[in-house]
């Protein structure tokens, strides 16, 4: 029993210590960080945070991320649900072919597509634009979304939809007013899954988003850390790191059960 709790506590410490340490360091001066990495700051220096927000552009990166991830998530969910619904509830020639073609997209590593994708996006004039990233993000999130929701729409009872058709509802009307609301639990799971996947993207923006004004958060922060400039402002970079972690932490505190269920059910599909 004793050993068990010691092991559990040890891993909890391994997980939390780096994060707490970064939080603590974000309030210190550079000198304090260099002299004694372990001691708490003499006073809470919030100006590190405001420096990170303004001068290091973390605020701008956060805004960019919200625009790109928000747009891509909305587009993915709308198109993914619509596609999954059509493939799951309608018989038509080519149905299976389209389904397998879409789902096959999950088998390929993004690295394989990287070079041609760069030129496709470049030729369309979409390199470094919000809408370019949104379209690419949505395209790559589509296969899993369709795969996940396809099973979900299949399992929904058909009687309600039939009743709506008899009442004179259109195909689109049945989808939006009847079937989509019934698929809510599935939409929430796959929505959480997609949100985190898109929020955490690094490879795609690294290649497709070379414009520093449009950097997303993960990319911008990594760029700051890798570039030489950071050596002059450690405390600001720590603050930027903490600002990047906090939104996810807050979301997790409030929705931790749904988030864990959403992510693990996605894996087991």
């Amino acid at each position: 029993m004793r050993i068990k709790h010691a092991v559990l506590t040890l891993w909890a410490a391994l997980v939390t210590l780096p994060l707490l340490w970064a939080f603590m360091s974000s309030f210190k001066t550079d000198a304090e960080i260099f002299d004694s990495p372990w001691t708490p700051p003499a006073e809470l220096r919030f100006d590190n945070w405001s420096r990170a927000w303004d001068q290091a552009s973390i605020g701008q990166y956060l805004l960019n991320t919200l625009i790109v991830v928000g747009g891509a998530l909305a587009l993915t969910m709308l198109l993914g649900a619509l596609t999954a619904y059509c493939l799951a509830r309608y018989e038509f020639p080519g149905n299976r072919f389209i389904y397998y073609l879409l789902v096959a997209g999950m088998l390929f590593p993004v690295f394989l597509a990287l070079v041609p994708l760069f030129f496709v996006v470049d030729n369309l004039g979409l390199l470094g634009t919000y809408h370019g990233l949104i379209l690419v993000y949505a395209a790559y999130a589509l296969p899993f979304t369709v795969f996940f929701l396809h099973g979900f729409f299949r399992s929904l009872p058909g009687a309600v939809a039939e009743a709506a058709f008899i009442d004179g509802a259109s195909h689109a009307g049945v989808f939006f007013k009847v079937m989509l609301p019934m698929a809510r639990p599935g939409m929430v799971s796959v929505g959480i899954f997609n949100f985190l996947g898109l929020w955490n993207q690094y490879l795609l923006p690294k290649v497709l988003n070379p414009d520093p004004d449009h950097y997303v958060l993960a990319q911008g922060l990594a760029e700051l850390a890798v570039s030489q400039g950071y050596r002059s402002d450690w405390s600001g970079l720590f603050a930027g790191l903490v600002i990047a972690i906090l939104p996810v932490l807050l979301a997790y505190v409030f929705f931790q059960r749904q988030i864990r269920a959403g992510l693990t059910s996605g894996a087991l599909k």
């Binding site: 198109l79 993914g80 619509l82 596609t83 619904y85 059509c86 309608y90 038509f92 389209i98 073609l101 879409l102 997209g105 390929f108 394989l112 597509a113 990287l114 070079v115 041609p116 994708l117 496709v120 996006v121 379209l135 690419v136 949505a138 395209a139 790559y140 589509l142 296969p143 369709v146 259109s170 195909h171 689109a172 989808f175």
Partner: peptide, 25 residues
């Protein structure tokens, strides 16, 4: 209107998938 609905619903996602995923692969 079944086929009209299907075409309308599927054309955008399939075009997106074809241009940005399938064709690069």
């Amino acid at each position: 209107g079944k086929y009209r609905f299907l075409v309308g619903a599927l054309i955008v996602p399939l075009a997106l998938y074809g241009v940005f995923v399938l064709s690069p692969y």
